[in-house]
Amino acid sequence: MNNEVIVTCAVTGAGDTVGKHPAIPVTPRQIADAAIEAAKAGATVVHCHVRDPHTGKGSRDPALYRALVDHIRSSGVDVIINLTAGMGGDLQVGAGESPLAFGEGTDLVGGLTRLLHVEELRPEICTLDCGTLNFGDGDFIYVSTPNQLRAGAQRIRELGVKPELEVFDTGHLWFAKQLLAEGLLDAPPLFQLCLGIPWGAPADTTTMKAMVDSLPPGAIWAGFGIGRMQMPMVAQAVLLGGHVRVGLEDNLWLDRGVPASNGALVERAIELITRMGARPLTPAEGRAKLGLAKRG
């Protein structure tokens, strides 16, 4: 069991959740305010995407990230900033017998282009999604090839940013360990076990334990489940020695029929952690655990 827990809040994501919840953060100011709310509730880390303010859809516009990060850093609230670098891997395969007629949901760029906002803003952490995945039903694929990942890992290392290795299936974990073996990651590596996304690894005890048992020696790791499995996977991760993630990116509900806020989800997770006899780490303690220098 882990007695000192880093709590990450994933505040908005890029999924189609606008309109499914009364208060999904959309504008940079709304996303920053949600991150600050999570930090005040006790989050150690905030994991941030940005959205197009006009459509609510996920974006990779560096100007939106700049506005978001500037507001968090100028707020006076201490929190570790973790920016996604996963946008730009979306491929909507054409339907039926026309797979090369890519759909309007396609946004596919190279591994280094996905890092433009990281280059500019130098967050303490950014994500590296460690493989390709059938993303839900239909014809959507998230694309992250071995050579894209090698280029991305090398550049993130040169920037002095800590990569959070997002693992959606066992093959992703296998390849992340290959990146470590090739010297493209600094020790200790930081893993995020992302469970319950169709059609990746399911959110259950057997799967989380199998992935934990396959981690390299000395790795730091966290895990989460989506939807109703969010809080069960908080408990499971702590029991298996890991850290945790909650937030509106992964789950919209506090209780049945009760919409969540990021602050309320963090508070619920911390209540669960403390009732298990563990405690959440402050951002300063999280930096010490992860070997990070404060930015901004």
Score class of each variant (00 low, 15 high):
I125A: 08
T127N: 13
T207F: 06
P198L: 06
E164N: 06
L190R: 10
L215N: 11
P188H: 01
H117R: 06
R122T: 09
Y142G: 02
A203C: 07
V212Q: 00
V161C: 08
T113W: 13
A176V: 07
V109W: 02
G131C: 02
A153H: 00
E119G: 03
I141D: 08
C194G: 05
M211W: 13
K162A: 07
G223Q: 04
V143R: 05
E158H: 04
T206Y: 07
V167I: 12
P217Y: 13
A187N: 14
P217V: 14
L184M: 11
T207K: 04
P123D: 05
L112V: 01
T113Y: 15
E104I: 13
C194M: 09
A176M: 13
Q154W: 11
F102N: 03
V161L: 01
F135T: 08
E97W: 10
M229N: 15
G110W: 02
L108Y: 09
G160V: 06
D213H: 10
P163A: 01
L159V: 11
Q178I: 15
I220N: 08
D139K: 14
L180K: 12
T127Y: 09
M231I: 08
W221N: 00
W221K: 00
T127R: 05
L185E: 02
K209D: 11
L180V: 12
Q148D: 14
F140C: 08
G196P: 05
E182Y: 12
Q178A: 14
Q178C: 14
T113V: 15
P123I: 03
G196F: 03
E119P: 04
G218T: 12
Q230F: 05
V167P: 01
L108R: 06
L180A: 13
L116E: 15
Q154E: 14
G171V: 10
E120K: 15
G110H: 03
G218S: 04
G218A: 05
S98Y: 10
L159C: 12
L159F: 11
L121E: 08
E164Y: 00
G138D: 10
N147Q: 15
R228W: 06
E120L: 12
S98E: 10
L215M: 06
V212N: 03
C130H: 04
T170P: 08
R228I: 01
N134T: 07
T170C: 08
K162Q: 04
I141M: 15
P198K: 07
R114M: 00
T207W: 03
D129E: 04
E104W: 12
F140L: 13
L184Y: 08
R157S: 11
V167H: 02
C194R: 09
P99M: 01
G138P: 14
G218P: 12
M211D: 08
L193I: 10
A219T: 11
H117K: 07
N134R: 11
V109M: 12
F224G: 02
P216S: 07
G103P: 01
G111D: 02
I220T: 06
G138H: 09
P202D: 05
T106F: 12
P188G: 11
A181C: 15
P198D: 11
C194K: 05
T106K: 10
C126E: 01
M211T: 10
G196M: 02
L165W: 06
W199A: 09
P216F: 12
Q230V: 02
D139Y: 12
C126M: 07
T113R: 14
A187C: 13
G152I: 01
C194V: 15
R228A: 13
L180F: 09
W199I: 10
G105H: 10
E158D: 09
F168T: 00
D129H: 13
